[in-house]
Design a protein around this nucleic acid. Structure first.
Lengths: 237, 237
DNA sequence: GTGTGGTTTCGAACACTGTTCTAGCAGATC
DNA sequence: GATCTGCTAGAACAGTGTTCGAAACCACAC
């Protein structure tokens, strides 16, 4: 029961690498988030784990929890960091329609740049500081363009949903191309032949449009979405 | 090394419950999928696991693998089963615009009826038999309405994305209401007061539209989306 | 110097996950 | 009978998020 001072470790028992001195670069929320994003981009959500992040920072998983609370908390921080990458121009009342389109394009690019970020964003309404700035600036453009307040809010939220939804289906199939990577062209050809082989009696329409299914230009479809959205919005102002 | 026949189990060692006789109701893919959906709806994706499904079927997790291959395979089957719930009417060339809207409304209802199904659908382009039937029938409506083939395909894919994206953000916050469940009204009030408390200099727009943010009518916004989409589409035919 | 208290680290452990291995059973076929 | 095939399921493996508690470090009081 007497608690003597702990003995020095015997010389044959190597002290664990980091135990002797404090970290050279102290752990911070920022460094954790940055490394987490790097891992996410490089290896994808499936390989992303607290232990993996800790390993990259040369520490144990438990240490991260003091800074970010939980994995979910870390994902929140990641989301806001990524949202913060997007830049929104100063409002130009004349060119608001093109400005809104450009904002949407930037969103799409940002999402596509970060692998699996769309999967993280799923049940996570961004409310961090960067998300607030984004909302503020987009609303500024819409209101400067003469869009009434309620419609501005509605269409802003709608735009977010649409871009997210579009990009979600778009990047979906990337998910770890399992070695025998079917290229985009191969995939298209596979879809076409699959559709063309369907029973004619039951699937007349699908068979006839099979070609158009195969060569779906994502960029073109996104522009179509933007046109539909902004034109409709402008007509309602 | 001699492999003798296995000894009969000693009488004091109770044989495990199910070992003595074959299951009364044999496991099938269908029953597995049905129970899986039931668990998913009742308890959500986070509590959903192969062991949980097996437990519900009074068996071990390993048994499921013979029927569905993997968890991912099971999720694929679940997706197609849910897609199959949707009914699409026979094409009416005059009323194609309203028909398309109705299809979208049905989609949204189906997604909302099944908790977390939108999270499952994320990287999963539906290609099961039911998904094929759905595509066929929607394309039938569009083409009957005079939409040219390429535009029909584009807009069909676009519609799927939009409905998915919209419903994704919509049902997002449900995610296990953690005991102190903030009701929809409370949440609205919280958002409003949060926005109203932002620094006026940095967030003038957000502050001024805070009220509209709080009372966002999802149904109204969805109808707005449908109007934008279908009107724009009709204008392009 | 010597405490003392707060911040920060992290090894070990817990309860869980998807999945595979392997042995075994029931019924049809030879 | 013996053999084979379709099917069941216990045990184990490697991995997960998270918590606990002990230790190490720092800054300040005495």
């Amino acid at each position: 029961m007497a608690n003597n001072p702990p003995l020095p470790p015997p010389p044959w028992q190597r002290v664990p690498e980091r135990a002797k001195s404090r970290r050279r670069d102290p752990l911070t929320r920022e460094t954790i988030v940055t490394t987490a994003i790097r891992i996410l981009d490089a290896e994808g959500l499936d390989r992303f784990s607290m232990r993996r992040v800790a390993e990259e920072l040369d520490t144990g998983a438990a240490s991260l929890y003091w800074h970010v609370g939980s994995k979910d908390g870390l994902l929140d921080l990641i989301m806001d960091e990524v949202v913060g990458e997007q830049e929104v121009p100063e409002p130009d009342p004349e060119g608001w329609q093109e400005q809104i389109k450009e904002v949407a394009r930037t969103m799409r690019r940002t999402i596509l740049r970060h692998r699996d970020i769309v999967r993280i964003s799923i049940g996570r309404i961004p409310m961090g500081p960067n998300a607030m700035v984004l909302s503020e600036r987009v609303l500024a453009i819409l209101r400067a363009g003469g869009v009434p307040d309620e419609l501005a809010v509605q269409s802003y939220l709608l735009m977010m949903s649409m871009v997210n939804g579009f990009t979600m289906d778009e990047g979906g199939y990337v998910e770890e191309p399992p070695i025998g990577a079917p290229s985009l062209e191969e995939a298209g050809a596979m879809v076409r032949s699959y559709l063309a082989a369907l029973p004619a009696k039951q699937f007349p329409n699908l068979r006839e449009v099979a070609d158009h299914f195969a060569i779906t230009d994502q960029d073109a479809r996104f522009e179509m979405l933007l046109d539909l959205f902004v034109d409709g919005l402008a007509a309602r102002v």
